[in-house]
């Protein structure tokens, strides 16, 4: 099991390097992040064994990443929409 997760991680690393050589336009970053998230999830679930942890530990582990998305979401919600209302000086 450990070894198959390890091989999957190596394959995903190879894919991310290969894909980086192609120009997918606006998909460049989403593809790279998608692969990184997949790799991270594999490590969390199997190597860190969250898969076999209690519901409480699972909740705490997931909460960290949820808060991170709140941080990114609200901050970029500000930066990306600043020009929308045409207020002078943003």
């Amino acid at each position: 099991m450990c070894v198959s997760v390890f091989l999957a991680l190596l394959v995903f690393t190879a894919i991310t390097v290969w894909v980086a050589g192609l120009d997918l336009g606006p998909l460049n970053t989403p593809v790279a992040l998608g692969i990184a998230v997949t790799k991270g999830t594999l490590v969390v679930l199997f190597f860190m064994g969250v898969r076999w942890n209690t519901p409480l530990t699972k909740t705490v582990a997931i909460s960290g990443f949820v808060w991170l998305l709140i941080l990114f979401g609200i901050t970029m919600g500000d930066y990306l929409t600043r020009g929308w209302l045409g207020v002078p000086g943003r």
Partner: peptide
């Protein structure tokens, strides 16, 4: 240890690979 590995999994594409597209 695995957590530190995960941080690198994100740092690698975001810092190193971003310049390679269409290069």
């Amino acid at each position: 240890w695995h957590f530190v590995d995960i941080v690198w999994i994100f740092l690698f594409p975001l810092l190193y690979l971003l310049g390679r597209h269409g290069a």
